[in-house]
């Protein structure tokens, strides 16, 4: 049986020689379900801030990049399982993740926020007002961790994708949702998110959120990490970063 599996794997799996070709070949893992950072537009193209940043970094590193989409809750295991070489998907550099993967310098940092239906009776996002409500978050995110720590009396539901908590917030199955402030404000300002509004923008917690969003690579790929760091510094310096930022947002998402 084991032999059969290996034979089948060899026959069907993509076999990629590690030997470098002329241009560095990189597979970038992203989620493709996290607008406005990385998502599919209606024509089926992968777009968003993360994607533009990734393309700019690849240009800077003279690398040929292909994108692989992967569900969020399996994205680190997939990196470890070598389904791609780096994660560029708005991943917060938390201490827990840092134990398993290696992070580059940050490429942006925005605070979390809470969204509620427009007719919600919630006055604010204090732990007292949030007690006894049902709060939705994407699983394996800093936002879920934040909710656990700061809203201990709130029932937390965890979803595989933001799409799922949005559907449930719309139907009223959950009373509020927590996610990145940019993600939620883009959503409530679109036709899709007309049901809902931002209740409050929260403060980053340094222990939970770490220094912001970075690019994750496998721990042994230190060379790749250094290349990314050099490239991030370069696009910050040469104005490409600002160009991409202004294309997507009217605020500066890099933070201080």
């Amino acid at each position: 049986m084991n032999r059969m599996i290996i034979v089948a794997a060899l026959a069907l799996a993509t076999v990629l020689p590690a030997a470098a070709q002329d241009k560095m070949q990189l597979r970038i893992g992203t989620e493709g379900a996290y607008p406005p950072f990385n998502y599919f537009d209606s024509a089926g193209n992968l777009v968003g801030f993360d994607i533009d940043i990734a393309k700019a970094l690849c240009d800077e590193m003279n690398a040929e990049c292909t994108f692989v989409t992967q569900d969020w809750d399996g994205i680190i295991p997939a990196l470890l399982a070598n389904k791609f070489d780096a994660i560029i998907a708005s991943m917060s550099m938390t201490p827990a993740r840092d134990e398993i993967v290696d992070f580059t310098d940050k490429y942006y940092n925005t605070p979390p926020a809470i969204a509620v239906p427009k007719d919600s009776s919630l006055a604010d996002a204090s732990p007292e007002s949030m007690a006894d409500i049902i709060l939705g978050a994407q699983s394996s995110t800093t936002h879920a961790n934040y909710a656990e720590k700061f809203f201990p009396d709130t029932e937390l539901r965890r979803y595989g994708t933001p799409e799922e908590y949005k559907l449930d917030l719309q139907s009223g199955r959950i009373d509020a949702a927590i996610d990145d402030s940019t993600v939620l404000s883009t959503w409530v300002n679109s036709e899709d998110g007309a049901c809902c509004k931002i209740l409050e923008v929260l403060k980053n917690d340094p222990i939970i959120h770490g220094p912001g969003a970075g690019i994750a690579v496998r721990e042994e790929d230190t060379e790749l990490k250094e290349k990314f760091n050099t490239a991030i510094a370069a696009i910050r310096a040469n104005g490409v970063y600002k160009q991409i930022n202004d294309k997507h947002f009217d605020i500066d998402v890099y933070g201080d």
């Binding site: 809750d73 680190i76 295991p77 470890l80 827990a96 398993i100 699983s139 394996s140 965890r158």
Partner: peptide
Amino acid sequence: TRLAYSDTFRF
């Protein structure tokens, strides 16, 4: 199980 896995990445 999925929750525990996503918290710890322990397969």
